[in-house]
Nucleic acid binder design. Structure first.
Lengths: 218, 218
DNA sequence: AAATAATTTTAGATTAGTCTAAAAATATTT
DNA sequence: AAATATTTTTAGACTAATCTAAAATTATTT
């Protein structure tokens, strides 16, 4: 049996490992889990005993294949529920994350498989993130940060990194959504802001924003 | 903040109070919660401090208005999720209870209101139990136990008491469902079994079964 | 109304997850 | 390479929910 807390730690380790190094350090986990390093050490030991992570003292943690399987399954559930909330329950993309954080822990294979079918096997969630299939395979989409896009080129918006309500509402208020076709007009070296054009509009976005939008060349 | 465990105790007390006396004793709660009387005492004290139950030592517990409000809200969520599982995810009525036990604890008003709308504001769950509205009002259906129905009369099946998978599968295998029109052919005084007729069939059901089926005169 | 039985509560211990404060190990600076 | 800073771990304590065993109360029987 795996507890709710264990699942959340595994998920945190998975996310930390996927955007960066493969071995995850204690403080980083503590930051994500909003807890103290000492608590993380305790939990890592427990997860290590249960074979969800490999752990050597002072050397950080990495997920085992078993741990990865658990993480991907939770992510599958989280993203399917997000699609459900948007498609069937009229949630907007900035409202789904928190509720999905709870729904993702419900354990029932039939529930998830039928939900998947009801939604017609969606490949991406409302933020553009890929949804793993039953076996845990995802289609990796090649995408680049807006911050790294080249001036003069045109792209399609295919995802966001920050899924906080605040950021998504900012995008809404600027009419940027998944699928929006964006041309890079100018990259300002001084503050790394970027001038972009789409649908008769031209706006300048900060570096912070530019790092949280993913594009694909068109 | 109310914990998962507290919610489950409140629900248990509500159900125990609604089929019988208004004051619920410690051992009865322990039986429902599959725990020991001493644990129940501890929890009742805690719920009493939080004003969800009235409690005097050795005198059992009763829900306060606040406690009832919590209980009815959980029941609303439970029954809406059951309808969702049957109507949208192809669950059968014997599969829904366990999953709904978990889904009922997800806290989001928007989630439940939108779910209610998606299901077109159902009045009853898959077992015939009424679904409270947002304000906690349910329409009380007048119904009688099959065991108390009178010989010679005709009724419609409107509910079941036991929602265990075992019992519901028994009903399925005998083609008894909500809405089935049943005529009482004979009540056997020896063992309180009942001979019933419906749709070209005649079967005898035991007293145990007869006590778990609810009928309404037609 | 005693005696006995059943129920309920208390006292003290246990587990999961957390914390603080101090110690140990590793990394960085000088 | 020694000193300092940072990170991680340990030790011991705390809370929520549970348990066992014993004590207290209430209910039932004789």
């Amino acid at each position: 049996m795996i507890t709710l807390t264990e699942e959340n730690y595994i998920k945190a380790i998975y996310h930390l490992a996927s955007n960066g190094e493969k071995t995850v350090n204690t403080n980083a986990i503590a930051a994500v889990m909003q807890t103290k390093a000492s608590s993380v050490t305790d939990m890592i030991k427990k997860l290590s005993e249960k074979s969800y992570v490999d752990y050597k003292k002072y050397q950080g943690a990495t997920l085992t294949d078993d741990g990865k399987r658990v993480a991907v399954n939770i992510i599958r559930k989280h993203r399917l529920w997000e699609v459900f909330l948007v498609e069937k329950l009229n949630f907007s993309w900035d409202e789904v994350h928190e509720v999905a954080e709870h729904l993702e822990h419900i354990k029932s294979d039939k529930l998830i498989d039928e939900l998947d079918a009801l939604l017609e096997f969606p490949s991406h969630d409302p933020h553009g993130d890929p949804i793993p299939d039953k076996e845990g395979n995802f289609k990796h989409i090649e995408k680049i940060m807006l911050a790294k896009a080249e001036a003069g080129s045109t792209y399609k918006c295919v995802g966001v990194d920050d899924t906080s309500s605040k950021f998504l509402k900012y995008l809404d208020s600027n009419s940027i959504a998944l699928g929006t076709i964006i041309t890079i007009k100018h990259k300002e070296p001084y503050d790394n802001s970027v001038k972009i054009a789409f649908e008769n509009t031209e706006i300048v976005v900060s570096q912070n924003v530019a790092k949280n939008i993913y594009l694909k060349k068109v």
